[in-house]
């Protein structure tokens, strides 16, 4: 009932130490970034005026492309079949790289690898597979097994082993080491520690990263089609070369549907796996 009076207390805010140098570092960072962008823009010939001047060409291209050609026998059915091939390349490229990626991840993680030499060797292998782009692997395998999806699968297995192995090794290093240490004090061997503590601790993140790589690999296998590894990429390439832009639009729409479906599926599974 009674009117209460609040005494508002204020206290002196001490000045932040080295405030001036913070402004200096910010200024230098901005100057460096701006310089880098000027160089990059010049080197890539990035000029908006050129884009506007060439808008006519794009218009001609688009008027050729629309309306899209949805003819079942000549366009849509082959596009669906080829998209399925692209999906299978992405699927096999992901799953068949699991054994090698798992082995190299365990050996290439500081927390689970028992031996320094083995650790460095595994890291070097992972770096090699990661550094060589999947397109280069595809070109190499095409010379061995010929044009077609098989070369694409082999290429993805190699590249994905490097990327997924590295991601998994990092997940292992970041995980809680406690349970592994606990089993170590109970007399478990390193292999037993890995099987009963390290790996169960990271199952969730491993599955998440696997699904993420599946997502990426399906899109990569599209590009691999352009260099002759089969699938929808090959059809898109053929449409462009024979100026059938209306068919190309249909093929891209089919790919869009595939990408959305894969994305939804992996989001759904990730939600179920997360604990």
């Amino acid at each position: 009932m009674s009117q209460q009076t609040f005494e508002i207390r204020r206290s002196h805010v001490p000045p932040r130490p080295r405030a001036v140098s913070r402004w200096t570092t910010a200024g230098i960072s901005i100057a460096v970034l701006v310089t880098l962008h000027v160089v990059a823009l010049r080197d890539t010939g990035f000029r908006i005026s050129e884009l506007i001047a060439g808008a006519e060409g794009m218009g001609a291209f688009l008027s050729d492309a629309f309306p899209a050609d949805f003819d079942w026998d000549t366009v849509l059915a082959p596009a669906l079949a080829a998209t399925a091939t692209t999906l299978w390349i992405g699927l096999l490229g992901t799953t068949l790289s699991i054994p090698a990626a798992l082995l190299l991840a365990v050996l290439g993680s500081r927390t689970t690898s028992g031996n320094k030499v083995v650790y460095q060797l595994a890291r070097a292998l992972l770096s090699f597979f990661r550094a060589v782009p999947d397109v280069v692997f595809a070109l190499i395998f095409v010379t061995a097994v010929g044009l077609g999806p098989f070369a694409g699968v082999l290429a993805l297995i190699c590249h994905n082993t490097g990327v997924m192995g590295k991601l998994w090794a990092e997940a292992l290093e970041e995980s809680d080491q406690g349970p592994q240490q606990a089993l170590g004090t109970a007399g478990a061997t390193r292999l037993q520690q890995v099987m009963h503590a390290s790996l169960p601790m990271v199952t969730g993140s491993f599955v998440g990263l696997l699904l993420y790589r599946f997502d990426v690999n399906v899109r990569s296998s599209l590009v691999l089609g352009l260099v002759g590894a089969g699938g929808i990429g090959l059809l898109i390439n053929q449409s462009i070369k024979s100026f059938q832009f209306d068919a190309m639009v249909t093929q891209i729409l089919v790919v869009l549907v595939l990408i959305i479906l894969v994305d939804q599926l992996s989001a759904f599974i990730r939600k179920r796996v997360a604990v």
Binding site: G178, P179, H196, A197, P200, M201
Partner: peptide, 9 residues
């Protein structure tokens, strides 16, 4: 251990 260190999964 203080932090128990069981495998939660």
């Amino acid at each position: 251990f203080q932090k128990i260190h069981l495998v939660p999964r």
